[in-house]
Amino acid sequence: MFRILSKSLKTGVVTKADPFESRPPLGFPVIDFARCTACEECAHACPTGAIALAAPAADRRQLSLSYAACIQCRECVAACPEQVVASGRDVEVAAYTREQLTQTASFDLDGMGRARFTHMEAQAGPGLEESAARLRERIRGLLGRSLHVREVDAGSCNGCELEITATTNPVFDLERFGIHFVASPRHADLLLVTGPVTRNMEIALRRTYEAAPEPRVVVAVGACGCSGGIFGEGTYASIGGVDRVVPVDVYVPGCPPRPQAILNGLLVAMGVREARLNPKAPAASPEPAVTPSPARPRARGVDEG
């Protein structure tokens, strides 16, 4: 007993005062669309279809990038011959709709078949502020500063579970924000759901949702929870994103999202933090050991414009 006490005293407080201060070395990709030639190399390299090229007309192209499906594998960064795809350093991304996680750029083709960037498409559905107001309206006052969370694994690979568990460790200690994991949906204000939702978990997820009292909030976690991720959407086994089965209030993309991103998503759902979407450009900090490809030089910071 004495040893335990002395060890604890010596260790002191390990909890990070500001869990959001650290930036990961490599986050979601950032495309400098203005310099992009819509060559489609990144879309071919993307294993989840997070980057896709469409041809709405013979002389037009649309390149879209969705963080909902992105697994941060950085293949697009390595594949881009123009070096206009870079890894952002801000991964505490959260949104209120799937559409908010997608950016779409339009290009015109000239006579030689070269693509020229024209504009960014307006994002479909409500904007961040409008969605935030709607969510606040729905949960007004009822949650206060206390949030009881039931975690539901609706078919994940367990990567998200590892990081959700990490939010409870002494370093992140999410209970200090008034957030508490509970054992039953009947005690929960919020369901934290990972996916992809499998055919075999669909009914269990629906029932868990129905067992939670109103106003129940749902946060979808991970690329698979947001979009089906690498497992896809609409297969015989994987229904896909959580929103295919129950309504989702907040999306936390990433594969898996860091504990900071999950904590951020929960605070967004409580209305304590604002959802953010646009990762900043890579900062001038030490390069991590990861090199996207041995053959090509790394893409440089591209988001200054």
């Binding site: 697994i71 941060q72 594998c73 950085r74 990567g159 860091r258 991590p288 050991a289 990861v290």
Partner: peptide, 23 residues
């Protein structure tokens, strides 16, 4: 838990991924 967090933080610093994805 503190030790485990220290390890995955080191992994993120070195390899860009806490759970060693994409290595």
């Amino acid at each position: 838990q503190i030790l485990r967090e220290g390890l995955v933080t080191m992994q993120e610093r070195l390899f860009g991924s806490r759970l060693l994805r994409g290595t």
